[in-house]
């Protein structure tokens, strides 16, 4: 798994599992500031300090407790970011949501390729008709924003049932990839 977009997919699945209603994804690639930042934020159920500690360092032990592994996604992402001289950050609040960010130098040699991020987001949008997504990709020259909320508003109560119609999928594809 050496593509940023696969890590984004993994982080977004965490948000989906946490019952998020809206998931926001930002990718900033600023050559001028020598900085790449990827962020996934959700309004899901969040996690306690204790769960977060275990999630980030799954082999953390206390004297009374045996080693407990609760998942490898977050440690994996943290490791990737730190291996390219980057910074991993996570903030979470029970009942409010979670924000995960990785940032690393633009010109790092170990930097993973972004991969097919727009395709990945397209599948996420289509396969999750009940969840809203906002995706922002920005570099020194331009910015691209995709947001399902105005789409849902426009389609009204029929939004979910027509979400996977070929017409709407085609529109999503045009907005995310062809434009």
């Amino acid at each position: 798994m050496y593509e940023l977009s696969l890590f984004v997919l993994d982080l977004v699945q965490n948000s989906i599992t946490a019952d998020a209603e809206i998931i926001k994804i930002w990718l900033f690639e600023f050559e001028s500031e020598n900085l790449v930042t990827i962020t996934v934020a959700d309004n899901g159920k969040g996690m306690s300090k204790e769960v977060m500690g275990k999630a980030v360092d799954p082999f953390m032990t206390s004297k009374t407790e045996r080693k407990k592994k609760i998942g490898l996604g977050l440690p994996f992402f943290k490791q990737l970011i730190e291996s390219c001289e980057g910074k991993f950050r996570i903030k979470s609040k029970l009942g409010i949501g979670t924000v995960v960010t990785g940032s690393f130098p633009y010109s790092n040699v170990d930097q993973p390729p972004v991969g097919n991020l727009e395709e990945t987001i397209l599948s996420l949008v289509i396969a999750n008709p009940g969840i809203d997504f906002r995706y922002t990709r920005r570099n020194d020259k331009k910015e691209k924003i995709f947001d399902t909320r105005p789409v849902r508003k426009m389609l009204g109560s029929d939004a979910e049932i027509m979400w996977q119609s070929s017409e709407l999928m085609e529109w999503f594809r045009n907005e995310l990839i062809e434009s």
């Binding site: 924003i145 426009m154 017409e167 529109w171 045009n174 907005e175």
Partner: peptide, 12 residues
Amino acid sequence: MKLDELKAIREK
């Protein structure tokens, strides 16, 4: 985003 296209899509 080309939201105006959604009306036609909705009908179809």
